[in-house]
Design a protein around this nucleic acid. Structure first.
Length: 104
DNA sequence: TGGGTGACTAAGT
DNA sequence: CACTTAGCCACCC
């Protein structure tokens, strides 16, 4: 439990993720940039711990791949939101960043 | 104060 | 296109 003021890195990251509309996604780097930082890895840490209450599946890697070990549940959300996907191989997929990338 | 860690990224093989 | 290497940043011990 992090006792913290409401302007720390974590709160800002969560605020940006919650602002991403359905059928759209942002990369970890984009989220970090949105709050004036380049700590893409720190964003991942925040999602891993606090992401349970935000649309974490809308935050993916720059390559279009969903978070490691979370591809399956993420896919369920993408299908429900009609997020544009591409299938370079059977059993594997990635988000079509060209269309789904959200730019505030 | 210093060092290790990770739901990352970009560039090179 | 997939894997590897080095660089970066915020957080925890």
């Amino acid at each position: 439990m992090a006792a913290h003021p409401d302007q720390d890195f974590v709160s800002r990251v969560l605020a940006v993720v919650e602002s991403i509309p359905p059928a759209h996604v942002m990369t970890y780097g984009d989220v970090a940039a949105a709050i004036g930082s380049r700590a893409a890895r720190a964003v991942g840490q925040v999602m891993a711990y606090y992401g349970s209450d935000v649309p974490w599946w809308r935050v993916i890697r720059a390559s279009g791949h969903p978070p490691i070990d979370h591809e399956a549940p993420a896919l369920e959300h993408y299908r429900a939101e009609s997020t544009p996907l591409v299938w370079p191989a059977a059993g594997a997929y990635r988000v079509d960043l060209r269309v789904a990338r959200w730019r505030p």
